[in-house]
């Protein structure tokens, strides 16, 4: 009888203990689980961060292409203010053999002078500058980039002139407050020749000089680039992505 009472008295304690013991197991498990999940969460988070960084780099490349292509569309229409807005404050511009102009104000004035100090094309003017062949290389930190492009150009004035033009760009870009801007524009003019006779029968009629005689640049031409029929290989900002071919004989010789 006493034993029964004792049992009844003890039972809650036993139950508690047993419950506690269950709970303590599960509590210990939970702590362990929580800490494992916690590291899961941080592992998942860091995995997500790296994926997000990769997506951002692809988007950066696309943004830079949109930027340079928009530059082309503005140039086609001689929209000089819109065009100037695409540059970083301390950007430089160097076209053909006209020398280098530094800073947005100088760039704006240079562009205006290219366009006879007017906004927009004049009646009878054609100024097509197709922006083709982007090779964009983003810096490791994703805050700057370089890009090679090629422009194919149809310009002229109705009843006065028609020209074929072509040449590559080697440009640089910066990301400023999340927005990509052109920080360096270098255009190498391969040809600018009359439509009639083209590049086969004409030398470059501009010699790569546009407004610099009237509006001297901040720095003279930065390289030895000449004008057609002279040829020049504008340096590449990137190495061969796979690797230059090495002649087997040469490789054996070196080996």
């Amino acid at each position: 009888m006493f034993g029964n009472k004792l049992l009844i008295a003890i039972l809650p304690v036993l139950l508690t203990i047993s419950a506690c013991s269950d709970q303590s197991d599960s509590a210990a498990n939970s702590v362990q689980q929580a800490s494992r999940n916690d590291s899961d969460v941080s592992a998942l988070q860091s995995r997500l961060d790296s994926l997000r960084a990769r997506a951002q780099r692809i988007k950066d490349g696309n943004d830079i292409k949109r930027l340079q292509r928009t530059y082309g569309y503005y140039l086609d229409e001689a929209l000089w203010d819109e065009l100037t807005d695409l540059f970083a404050d301390d950007a430089t511009v160097e076209y053909a053999r006209d020398g280098l102009y530094r800073g947005k104000d100088r760039i704006r004035e240079y562009l205006y002078r290219l366009g006879d100090n007017r906004i927009g094309l004049e009646e009878g003017q054609l100024n097509e500058h197709f922006q083709l062949m982007p090779v964009i290389t983003l810096s490791d930190d994703g805050m700057s980039a370089k890009g090679r492009w090629r422009a194919v150009i149809l310009t002229g004035r109705y009843q006065e002139s028609a020209m074929w033009g072509e040449g590559p760009y080697e440009n640089e870009y910066v990301k400023d407050n999340g927005v990509w801007k052109i920080s360096k524009l270098r255009w190498y003019q391969t040809i600018m020749v009359p439509y009639e006779g083209g590049w086969g029968l004409n030398e470059d009629v501009t010699k790569g000089i546009y407004v610099s005689p009237q509006f001297p640049p901040d720095e003279p031409q930065t390289d030895s680039f000449g004008s057609w029929p002279e040829t020049f290989l504008p340096p590449f900002h990137f190495d061969n992505p796979v690797g230059r071919y090495v002649h087997v004989e040469a490789a054996e010789g070196e080996g």
């Binding site: 692809i58 490349g61 090779v135 964009i136 796979v242 071919y245 002649h247």
Partner: peptide, 30 residues
């Protein structure tokens, strides 16, 4: 997505090498 970017880039570089008779560079991307 990165693959597609690489392919477009390579085909473009092919064009730049071809434009300047850079035959060893061009052969190297094959």
């Amino acid at each position: 997505l990165e693959d597609a970017d690489h392919i477009e880039r390579l085909q473009t570089i092919y064009g730049y090498y071809l434009a300047r008779n850079q035959w060893d560079e061009l052969t190297g991307i094959f």
